[in-house]
Design a protein around this nucleic acid. Structure first.
Lengths: 205, 205
DNA sequence: TAGATTGTTAATCGATTAACAATC
DNA sequence: TAGATTGTTAATCGATTAACAATC
């Protein structure tokens, strides 16, 4: 299958392309050249064309790329033309903020369940989602076959909760904890602790 | 200067090394081999040694790396052996969560000012920080020479606010908005909209 | 000393870019 | 048609890895 040979760095750039194309769409633009995309994104036009051509020839010589068509193609490539159900574990401040974050639902991600171990918060509703006891987590996630989980628990319990998630079928974990998690091959792990990117940036300051 | 030649991918891995070393330190470990670090982090031992050797020979043949010494060296390389003052603009739910996030202060980042344009929230205190009118932003940031800003405003005003920040000396922006920002060369921009990493992950599911 | 593991070299692998024929 | 811009090739550039002498 062709898809398996796409470099990870290319895949990581596609959401940025999608983001920019959405912006152009809102501005009413019909087409865009690789050169313009490159200028906006701070890359070379050759890189843009090469990245896109992994998935097919979506452009037109002399004209560029049709914004809507390219956007839809990329959404299809990234499997964004469906709703993805997400579970969130750890309903602290960050967890609550993410549950209320409108950006998820407007892009096809829906947090459909949330778990915590604090009796104070279990049973409460946040952004329309009832917080369940984390003891229920495995049963619920298994039952509903949730593919993606957001991990916003304290560092100390991160690995344990991650193991439990994986045991009941979660395929991707967004790790917001400042922890180096061990996950089996085949499980996607995104480390998005806000501190990590800050620590990279300070090298250059 | 040697530092200028370090590949970005290497710099991006250093915080992960720091994270794991901190974990080992808490476990009371005195030394660690490149092989063990590699196993934990899912990389090769050669890569770890190569990355570290950009900054000097911190290891000892036959023994490995002294955890404390390596940790301190990396902290020094990443300029983490000081306090970094951070401004936050956009005190919505995500902004508030980040203001309350303990992970920043415990790693040497301190959100020292916050701004919003909503009269309802201006003047209130969140996590001990008084929210100021965004009209005051440029004056305050200039005056205190804040190098890092967290951008958590609505997408529509993101570019405008970013321009204002840069005009008054901000050198790095953590962009939490779903926007492709244009920034001048020399300004560090980290795109950490949570949706971006989700959209990358769905490609593989 | 014997065993272990580093730091570094050279080889490999992969990603980026310049250039241009194809073509809208 | 003339001008513009794609898709792709080949060259370049850069990052990763295997291997091993050095050495603790």
């Amino acid at each position: 299958m062709k898809r398996l040979t796409i470099p990870e760095v290319v895949v990581a750039r596609l959401p940025l392309y999608t983001q920019k194309l959405n912006q152009l769409l809102r501005e009413g633009r019909e087409s865009v050249s690789s050169q313009e995309m490159a200028d906006h994104l701070g890359i070379t036009s050759a890189q843009f064309r090469k990245d896109i051509s992994f998935f097919g020839g979506f452009g037109k010589q002399g004209t560029g790329y049709n914004v809507i068509k390219l956007l839809e193609s990329l959404r299809s490539v990234l499997n964004l033309d469906r709703i993805w159900e997400v579970a969130l574990v750890g309903v602290g401040r960050l967890g609550q903020a993410l549950m209320s974050y409108h950006g998820f639902s407007s892009t096809g991600f829906e947090i459909v369940m949330a778990f915590d171990n604090d009796p104070e918060i279990i049973g409460k509703s946040i952004a329309g989602i009832k917080v369940l006891d984390v003891k229920e987590m495995q049963k619920q996630i298994c039952h509903r076959e949730i593919p993606i989980a957001i991990l916003t628990v304290p560092a100390a319990s991160a690995q344990e909760i991650a193991d439990q998630m994986i045991a009941c079928g979660v395929k991707a974990i967004m790790n917001y904890t400042p922890t180096t998690l061990k996950v089996p091959k085949g499980i996607r792990l995104a480390n998005i602790d806000p501190v990590l990117s800050l620590q990279t940036i300070t090298f250059y300051l």
